[in-house]
């Protein structure tokens, strides 16, 4: 809605239909204006403080959390996630890895974290931590590993899920996200099968969403995609959403990380 108001404000004409290129240019201008003061930066600062703060039943900070590059290494970790972790024996994305650290180091109950609603309580903490961790890879190219056979299989499963048509509307992810330059209403649809499209989508979440006035993580973004796909709800940090993240992250190889982003 804000988006549409923005176009009207910028074009100065709410009555005359605009040609497509004018509409796109107006949208791009509107986004750029907002990007200069992205509210997501507040969440990055909050996440950074939470990372260093002694919290949870064990009153520990996350400074020893291993995001894949060794205990406590945050810089560059996000562009190499999801990846296989030998201590948990599975492929984890940033958010599921944060849950592991919050459980192992701080003593939080893993299942409780998974069962919470998005943007509430400790799940808001996870989103804020994700905003911070992702910001520490800003400008770096994606390099999601495919060295481990489990990582390769998760990519293949993610691809299957991407093309899986089901539900009342026969939709798959691919229904909307396999062509360049298409829109839903005025919303651009990235082509997630290409490096540029996957880089734009995977590389800009977590993001501040203007329409909801909150920070959204990749897991939340994927869950809402499935909602609009008319699928049942994916569980938080489920193997399906992690597999899809592997698919997107690997497709985004070489693309530059820009998170946290700013979205409609």
């Amino acid at each position: 809605m804000l988006c549409i108001l923005g176009i009207y404000a910028l074009t100065g004409s709410a009555q005359t239909p605009q040609p497509k290129d004018t509409t796109d240019a107006a949208l791009a201008q509107y986004r750029q204006m907002l990007q200069e003061a992205n509210p997501a930066d507040l969440y990055v600062a909050k996440g950074q403080a939470l990372w260093a703060q002694a919290r949870g039943p064990k009153a520990q900070s996350l400074r020893t959390c291993d995001l894949g590059l060794g205990p406590g290494v945050v810089k560059g970790a996000w562009v190499r996630l999801p990846r296989y972790f030998s201590d948990t024996g599975r492929v984890q994305d940033l958010e599921s890895r944060l849950i592991t650290c919050m459980h192992d180091i701080q003593g939080f109950d893993e299942q409780e974290l998974i069962d919470l609603d998005f943007s509430k309580g400790e799940r808001l903490t996870i989103a804020q931590l994700a905003a911070y961790v992702s910001s520490e890879s800003e400008g770096m190219p994606f390099n999601v590993p495919q060295t481990n056979p489990v990582e390769r299989e998760m990519y293949a499963i993610g691809q299957e899920l991407f093309y899986m048509r089901a539900g009342t509307h026969d939709f798959s992810c691919a229904s909307c996200h396999t062509q360049d330059g298409r829109r839903i209403r005025l919303q651009d649809l990235p082509n997630l099968s290409t490096p540029a499209g996957a880089g734009f989508a995977f590389g800009t979440w977590p993001a501040y969403r203007i329409s909801t006035g909150s920070i959204w993580s990749m897991q939340q973004r994927l869950a809402d995609c499935f909602r609009q796909q008319r699928f049942p709800k994916p569980k938080f940090a489920s193997p399906a959403t992690i597999a899809l993240s592997v698919y997107l992250g690997v497709n985004a190889s070489g693309q530059v990380a820009q998170a946290p982003g700013l979205k409609r």
Binding site: A166, G167, R227, P234, K235, S238, P239, A240, T241
Partner: peptide, 14 residues
Amino acid sequence: LSFEAKGQAGLDRL
């Protein structure tokens, strides 16, 4: 393993 029924969107949709 990954999905749960919510509202009118049951698992049978899969």
